[in-house]
Each structure stands twice: as structure tokens, then as C-alpha cells.
Design a protein around this nucleic acid. Structure first.
Lengths: 161, 161
DNA sequence: CGTCTTCGCCGGATGATATACTGAAAAATT
DNA sequence: AATTTTTCAGTATATCATCCGGCGAAGACG
């Protein structure tokens, strides 16, 4: 019996997820101490959580400002036709654009909501004019510049149980 | 002389950042191999990048769907008055709400753009009705449900040089 | 031009860690 | 209660993180 759908996480698993989301480089020894296990079963659980897809990977969190991406903006994009091939063309076009952090197809008002990070206004203008607007099918865009990040977390809330 | 503003990153530093952003749990030995250094100076560089703030931390990337947060939405929020204390009240109110992943003050049209993750429509309704709309000062909200994530990356582009 | 200083690198040594293996305890099932 | 299954802890070994000392290149200075 493979655990595919009915896999259940107990309190220890949830604690592991919460702790590793907070500090992904914690050593297994220290992690095991915090969840009141010996290192061996703790590592087994981490491997299982990785294998089952709860943990998709590990990443260093880099400072955008120090890497020259101080400006964030959201862009609403409307396509001139909403046919599957236009969607495909658009998706393929934005995939390699590294300014684009997220692109969501949304319901209610326009077609796509895009989150971008660029160096400054000049870079933003260049991005919008040379790259985004030149994608075939893009009819209209509306930009919201981010003035202040009131809250910003990538952390998925882990249930406490 | 402390390196505060004029700190420069060479090609090796940038490679380290790029690799650790991709796999934050890579051992220092393996990392040093990939950047063509011996372990010792490689670890020194990582420590320096951490100390200087280029690396803010490390995190396990968790799967939102498997943790019961399948629904994503963006909410535009308008406040009834735009005075500093209303801003403060709003910021303090949203800080502990774990459904809210991001909250940005934006220019052009409304006051805040919020990104939320919830379990389902019922949870969304409960969040909007019971939590967000009951914050004093919130005049109007408009929701954009995410139908499809066309692109999603937390990765900050690291210059290649 | 030669020397001195500085900086980043390498290699070895040492303590800590990851991880496989074995067996015991606990829990679930019958 | 007996059996099966699951999960755990302890031990052993290979790997790793990290400290220490020394080397060599680049630049400063006489």
C-alpha cells in the first residue's frame, strides 16, 4: 500500500516543516533535538517529507536590494484575444524573463497579474516597452508601483495540531 | 576599513549566490567543487555573504497545496482615510494574519495590494468577512482569484558577470 | 629594483555530522 | 494475549565543517 492520498502528518512532522521553513540549513542533530527525537528517525522523517513532496527544496534567501532589484511593481495585463494559442504564446514569452517573479491568470477584470522586480525606473521602462509590450497579443497593461512592502513572507502557514 | 558601501562581488561570489539560491542545503564541500575552490575559502565567502546581508537566511520550500492552501487570491484594498495612524492600524492588524503572504502599498488607483493563500472558497469568505473587512479604516476591497499560476519564482536574478 | 605587507588561497588536523545497520520498544491488529 | 507492524534509539563509519599554519601573487614603499 503506497501512501498517496491518505498520508497523514503528525505533530512531529509539522514541527519539522515549520522549523525547516524557518531555517533550512539547520543540522539534523539540532533539528532532532528540537523535535525531541534522536537523529536517525528525524532524518528519516525529513527524507520522507522530501520524497512525498511536502518539502520541494531548499533555498538561500537573497536580498533583492543588494542584488540591484530595488523596485517592485505589479502589472495588470490584458490580451486582445483569449484563445488557447494566445495564452501559450504569452506563457512561453514570459518564461525566460527574469524580471518576472510571478505571473498569475486571474478572474475578474483582466487576464494576468504579473509581479516584477527591476533595478529602477529606467529598467522598468525598458522592460515594459521592449519586452512585455512587444509580446504578441498584449493589448493593454496597467502598472502599480510598490511604494512600501508592509508585509512580505514566503512562509506557508503550518498547522499546529 | 570596513567594507560598507563599496563591497564588490566577484564572479565566484555571484556563482555561490546563484547555486545556494537553487539548493540551499548543498554541502560546503560540494559547493566548493562547483565554484572551483577548496572548501576553506569557499566557506569564508559564504560566511561573508551572510554577514554582509546578501544571504538573509535559508528556508525549506514547502508545497502550499499539500499544506492545505490551494487557493491564492489578490485583494485590492482601499482605506477610507489615508492618514498615518490609519496606515499604522492597518499594518498592525494584518501582521499576525497568516493567510496574508504579502501586503504592498502601491501607487496608482488604490492603497494596498494583498496576496493571500487560503484553503478554499469558504476559508476565503471567512477571511474576507471576519478578518480583513473588520479592520477599522478598510473602505473597499476587490478580489482577484488566481485561476492558474503561469510562472512562480522567488529567485532573485543573480548577475552573471 | 628589491623588500615588505596584505590578501586570498591551499592542505592537513580535529571535532562534529550524516547516514547505514541492528535490535528493542511501542502500537496496532487479530 | 499473541502477532504483526511501525517507530524508535544506539552504534559505527564515512563525510563534513572548521580551525590552523603556510604559500604565493599583487601591490606599497623605500
Amino acid at each position: 500500500m503506497t501512501r498517496q492520498t491518505a498520508d497523514q502528518l503528525d505533530r512531529i512532522d509539522l514541527n519539522i516543516l515549520r522549523i525547516l521553513q524557518e531555517d533550512g540549513r539547520l543540522s539534523n542533530v539540532e533539528l532532532s533535538r528540537r523535535v525531541n527525537l534522536s537523529p536517525t528517525p528525524c532524518l528519516e522523517r525529513v527524507r520522507r517529507l522530501e520524497r512525498d513532496g511536502y518539502i520541494q527544496g531548499y533555498a538561500a534567501r537573497l536580498d533583492p536590494e543588494r542584488l540591484g532589484r530595488s523596485l517592485m511593481a505589479f502589472i495588470e495585463v490584458r490580451l486582445d484575444r483569449t484563445s488557447p494559442d494566445v495564452f501559450k504564446i504569452f506563457a512561453d514569452a514570459i518564461a525566460p524573463m527574469d524580471e518576472i517573479q510571478e505571473c498569475h491568470m486571474v478572474a475578474g477584470g483582466f487576464d494576468y497579474l504579473i509581479k516584477v522586480r527591476v533595478a529602477d525606473m529606467a529598467a522598468y521602462r525598458a522592460f515594459l516597452g521592449d519586452k512585455l509590450s512587444s509580446i504578441p497579443g498584449v493589448a493593454q497593461t496597467h502598472t502599480y508601483m510598490v511604494m512600501e512592502e508592509v508585509k512580505s513572507t514566503a512562509a506557508i502557514p503550518v498547522p499546529v495540531r
